[in-house]
Design a protein around this nucleic acid. Sequence first.
DNA 1: TAAAAGTGTCAAATATATATGACTTTTAAG
DNA 2: CTTAAAAGTCATATATATTTGACACTTTTA
Lengths: 76, 76
Amino acid sequence: MTFKKMGESMNRVREYRRAKKLSQMALAEEIGVARQTINLIENGKYNPSLDLCLKLAWVLDTDLNTLFWRDEDEEK
Amino acid sequence: MTFKKMGESMNRVREYRRAKKLSQMALAEEIGVARQTINLIENGKYNPSLDLCLKLAWVLDTDLNTLFWRDEDEEK
DNA sequence: TAAAAGTGTCAAATATATATGACTTTTAAG
DNA sequence: CTTAAAAGTCATATATATTTGACACTTTTA
């Protein structure tokens, strides 16, 4: 299992979701979004909106900084 | 001057932009986005994408947590 | 080992973020 | 006070996030 770098951002949604023993479906419902949306985000296929990111952080009991970061350009 | 709560998120983009003495135009150019986009975000008129948020945090020398937060539902 | 639940993915439709160009109003300098 | 830059805003157009429904593949559990 290797990592695919498709977008410009990376995230730990899957990790945090599993820690809470939620399925993609369950998480999607809690947040009020489609299951596919969660799936695509976890697989880095696209670029969620800020609101969605905030809801994810909220439901997963974490914050934006720990959940999302940019993959390229490393440190400043 | 009073605050309008239009979206579900709040931000300190204007504050951090001014601290760097950048106009909306200058910031927009640095990030590669339209000036109106910056304007709308600063005024809470919509919901930027995660990539844009990350670029903003990057250019403004800060991070997601300090730049963006949800206005409603306060603390958990 | 069979069934069920969870996940990846595709195509088509819809909602909305973002772009472009123009114009008005506000703010900052001279 | 006058002017120019900066900021707010509108309408139209485009790109893309998100939805819906469906189906195959994989993992879990009975």
